[in-house]
Design a binder for these strands. Structure first.
Ligand SMILES: [Mn+2]
Ligand SMILES: [Mn+2]
Ligand SMILES: [Zn+2]
Ligand SMILES: [Zn+2]
Lengths: 156, 156
DNA sequence: TTACTAATGAAAATGATTTTCATTTTCTCT
DNA sequence: AGAGAAAATGAAAATCATTTTCATTAGTAA
């Protein structure tokens, strides 16, 4: 939605990469148009209709690049694939996840953010010292069944 | 270490399974002898010296079984493999993880447990309602580089 | 012991991600 | 605008963890 943000991100990427290419632009665009967490395959499928020339390999490489530059958040789902979401500014900034162990769906939430931030900060400080561990990121996630899978599980 | 616990667990498993087999017994034993989080392959390698007859497939099936019965905790590591740890009683009961994104090492921690439990409980209640999501488990994890990988990363 | 099947193991299949390498594209410098 | 260097790409093959298939083995109740 916020097209301004997409421009900011694109500028930021251009500045940290030696060449800005069409695949990168297209993939960024797809990520910017959704709030969902997409898998490489899902992005590739979306791409394919308009840009059949772009390969799945490039999708993987680009997502990895975006992730390395901190523009994209990568979530390793227990369903065996990684999913990617553009980091957005402002309100949606800090959030965590509900992950469906059956279909891999990821739901964002940001309830109790202040409280959580306080606890995480404190914990992070203590742990990095105690274990001489360089903490780069943290996840809080609730695993279970989404509404759809909950129903489908009952039947079988 | 606490051999008593292993017996309790074995009894609990026997009661919920139609047959108790040698592979299951051996795998449980390996899990009970360590505090680490082991991958299927690591368990298989350990097994191989004394029981070359047991196959990797059975290791996977057994771990999945133990996990389904709640005896083993399964952690999906961003390094692409799952790791398994026997749930222990008492002190180690409730804990979370530091995960190395380079080598997959998992470190347990249980600092600020009370505080965390309070926050998680509250969050769980609110989220399961709001999203009609059946919450089965939660993870709090810090991702980064363990001491060893931290050093090895500097060199290269 | 026997008979019934759950459980197993070997091999093949799957599926996500990575690697390889020849070709294309971007971008800087005329 | 055009040329050249090197980064980026894409197709195909390789990896690698996990799952499936199916013929054989081994717990267990009678
Ligand atoms: Mn998210
Ligand atoms: Mn643990
Ligand atoms: Zn689901
Ligand atoms: Zn490490």
């Amino acid at each position: 939605m916020p097209q301004r943000h997409q421009h900011q991100v694109r500028r930021r990427l251009r500045d940290n990469v030696s060449r800005w290419t069409q695949p990168r632009d297209v993939i960024l665009d797809i990520l910017a148009r959704t709030k969902k967490h997409l898998s490489a395959k899902e992005i590739y499928d979306t791409l394919y209709s308009t840009h059949p020339g772009i390969g799945l390999t490039t999708v993987y490489r680009t997502l990895e690049l975006f992730h390395r530059l901190g523009v994209v958040q990568k979530v390793t789902s227990p369903d065996g694939q990684s999913r990617y979401q553009l980091r957005s500014e402002g309100s949606q900034e800090h959030h965590h996840h509900l992950i469906c162990i059956r279909c891999g769906k990821i739901i964002d939430y940001q309830d109790f953010a202040e409280e959580e931030l306080k606890l995480v900060g404190k914990t992070e400080q203590v742990l990095s010292q105690k274990h001489n561990f360089l903490i780069l990121d943290h996840n809080i996630e609730f695993l279970g069944l989404c509404e759809k899978c909950r129903k489908e599980t009952q039947k079988s």
